[in-house]
């Protein structure tokens, strides 16, 4: 049939164009990202570039002592009734960013990463300007502190996880979540106000975000985003949350979409039947 031939030609032309401006163009524009992901084998939840870790089987009781000696001058641990020494505003002014409450960190930050972080925060985060200095802790003290933190930590989900893992610098204003640190302090500390994450999933996509959070410097060299060492479970949970908040009507869209397409299919049938009927007498 001639008309089908024309349609086939049309489909080929449109298909080639679409292939060129979407998959091809994106694969070329994002080549450096794919290369970085491949090079560092991201996401790397072992944080293999940081080297090996001694056995982390400390004593939580000794850990509490060490915690009070080394950590409480900046951090709180509400789960054990330890309040931060300053209110958020004063802390932000003193340090550039509000130091996190450490109640649940071991639930979402990888334990090995935490060890390396406590050894040398700037190295582990790959951020030279990182607000926390190296505390000169030995391996035993670190293991004890981690054991103490683990003994108090509870699992956090969804918005709570987002607030604890990202919320000191990032907000999600469509969820009425605002960064704990005031934007003017963040700007001084990081050079710019970190982006709001309400619809970041739409802008960046999971593939990028997972690797970026895992090793920011690999995908965006020079970024002031520190590596925070989220573990696999927390990363996945966070992705789920970011996807939900960026696209709250996904389920509705798919459901309505199917109904509309079925309706249009019926219309195709009906209009074809009518066309046949009218054209019967034409030829």
């Amino acid at each position: 049939m001639k008309e089908l031939k024309i349609l086939a030609v049309l489909i080929v032309i449109v298909g080639v164009t679409y292939w060129g401006i979407e998959p091809l163009a994106h694969s070329i524009m994002h080549k450096h990202i794919e290369e970085a992901i491949h090079k560092y084998n991201l996401p790397d939840y072992k944080f293999s570039d940081l080297g090996s870790t001694p056995p982390l089987d400390g004593d939580p009781v000794k850990g509490k002592e060490a915690f009070q000696m080394f950590c409480t001058s900046c951090h709180g641990l509400k789960a054990d009734g330890i309040n931060p020494p300053m209110d958020a505003k004063t802390a932000a002014m003193s340090f550039g960013v509000v130091p996190p409450d450490l109640s649940n960190v071991t639930e979402f930050i990888d334990k090995k990463f935490l060890y390396h972080f406590l050894k040398d925060p700037a190295k582990a985060t790959e951020n030279k300007k990182f607000a926390m200095p190296a505390m000169g802790l030995n391996d035993e003290q670190i293991a004890d502190i981690i054991a103490y933190l683990e003994s108090k930590a509870k699992k956090v989900h969804g918005a709570e996880l987002f607030k604890e893992a990202c919320g000191r610098c990032h907000g999600a204003k469509y969820q009425k979540i605002y960064a704990e640190t005031p934007p003017e302090n963040l700007k001084k500390y990081l050079g710019k106000v970190p982006p709001d994450l309400s619809i970041i999933m739409k802008a960046k996509g999971e593939h990028y975000l997972v690797s970026f959070i895992n090793k920011p410097q690999a995908l965006l060299p020079g970024t002031s985003m520190p590596r925070v060492g989220l573990n696999k479970e927390a990363t996945e949970e966070l992705m789920k949350y970011l996807d939900e908040i960026s696209d709250p009507h996904k389920e509705q869209r798919q459901k309505v979409g199917i109904i509309v397409l079925v309706y249009m299919l019926v219309m195709v049938g009906l209009t074809y039947a009518w066309k046949k009927k009218i054209w019967k007498n034409v030829h």
Partner: peptide, 21 residues
């Protein structure tokens, strides 16, 4: 127009596929 309606329906099927998916 009877043919046009048929073309429109096929077009809209394609169009709404793009809109939703």
């Amino acid at each position: 127009m009877s043919k046009e309606y048929f073309v429109m329906s096929v077009f809209l099927l394609f169009f709404f596929f793009l809109v939703f998916f």
